[in-house]
Amino acid sequence: MNFTLHTEFSDRLKVDWDQLLETNLVQAPFLEFDYQKLWWETRGGGEWTDAELMILEAHQNGVPVGIAPLFTIRQPDGSTAVLNVGSVEVSDFLDLLVRPEFQEAFIAALLNNLIAMHIPGLKIVQLFNLLDSSPTLPVLHSAAGKAGWTLSVERLQHSPCITLAGDWETYLAGIDKKQRHEIRRKMRRAEEADVSVKWYFAEDESSLDAEIDGFLELMKNDGDKDSFLKPPMQGFLRRVVHNAFNHKNLQLAFLEVDGHKAASYLSFDYRNKIWVYNSGLNRDFQALSPGWVLLGHLIQWSIEHGRTEFDFMRGDEEYKYRFGAVDRFVMRADLTPPAS
């Protein structure tokens, strides 16, 4: 197994990347080449400043079998840490890209190759935001022990998800009775309100930037999100939306009350699943529960259009469980190299 080091997101790398992602056991919009490229160009919306790209690609008999998108940073003590591209805050699910039949061989060879590279001051390799079901985790346990690495795995965040099947009434019947009545009541109240209440998807490219502006303004109504939305992060999110639009997997939804934006969800409609990325709310319209109402419509739309999952991704906000989401977790794998 021969490794190639890439220090840029090249067109040639994209060909191999797309091929590997098609058969990868883990699928997520954050693993797409174009997403990872724009994440790197903005360093995650300004999350990182001093970092060097280190994408390791493996071939066997001339065929690409695995890609590890990594980068290095200098830590305060002068040592070097290796992280996976997309870490940490804005990419909910990350992983390696590997042909399934090469999973064990690639990860074992990757660990050996990281040692052979003699990275100055290498202290730790951290793989963030792996789903607890990721096949990478058990293989890392085995490969690390054999190669003399020390592995520790930490649970980082809840990541609830709804599995969709049947129709809207089947979905409602499967959640808590009290919550079922509450969802119906709030959606009916909005429908029967004396004011105009409507929801829609942003689908017109000519008005997309204006819709993004509206979404960011709704996000800023949350104090934590307002402090998070520094100019570099706003620029990153704007590029994420345009990238998703260009790839035809954007789902930017709004609920309006009398023409005013009251709630919004930014999601990805990707590989027959809905991946809920972020949201915004205008609390001036709280009496109509716009967040709940819009979410109800989005789940109903997803069921009617044959989507298999409604994935809330990271975060344990209570409303997600009230809508019937079941917990999973994202993990971090810390690998300490063998003593030299």
Rank of each mutant, 00 (worst) to 15 (best):
T170K: 14
D327H: 05
H242R: 10
A147R: 10
H181W: 08
K146E: 13
M54N: 04
H141W: 11
A144R: 07
V90C: 14
E205M: 07
G45M: 11
I119K: 13
G306Q: 11
D226C: 14
W149A: 07
A325H: 02
H242M: 00
V139L: 05
N113G: 00
P135W: 00
L127W: 14
T336A: 12
L294T: 12
N272Q: 13
S79C: 08
V65T: 14
G280A: 06
P29I: 01
Y200P: 02
Q27Y: 02
E41H: 14
L255N: 05
V90R: 01
F106A: 12
G291D: 03
M233R: 14
F323N: 10
I55M: 12
Q126I: 01
L229Q: 07
Y277H: 08
E89V: 12
R188Q: 15
G86R: 02
E89N: 05
G235T: 05
S159R: 03
V26D: 00
D224V: 04
G259T: 10
A144F: 05
P138H: 05
E191V: 00
S207Y: 09
Q157C: 02
L83A: 08
L53R: 05
A193R: 08
L137H: 01
K198V: 07
W301T: 06
H247A: 09
Q126A: 11
G46C: 11
Q157S: 10
V139K: 01
E57D: 04
G145M: 08
T163R: 14
D16Q: 09
F128S: 15
H59N: 15
F329Y: 15
D95Y: 02
I175F: 06
S340M: 08
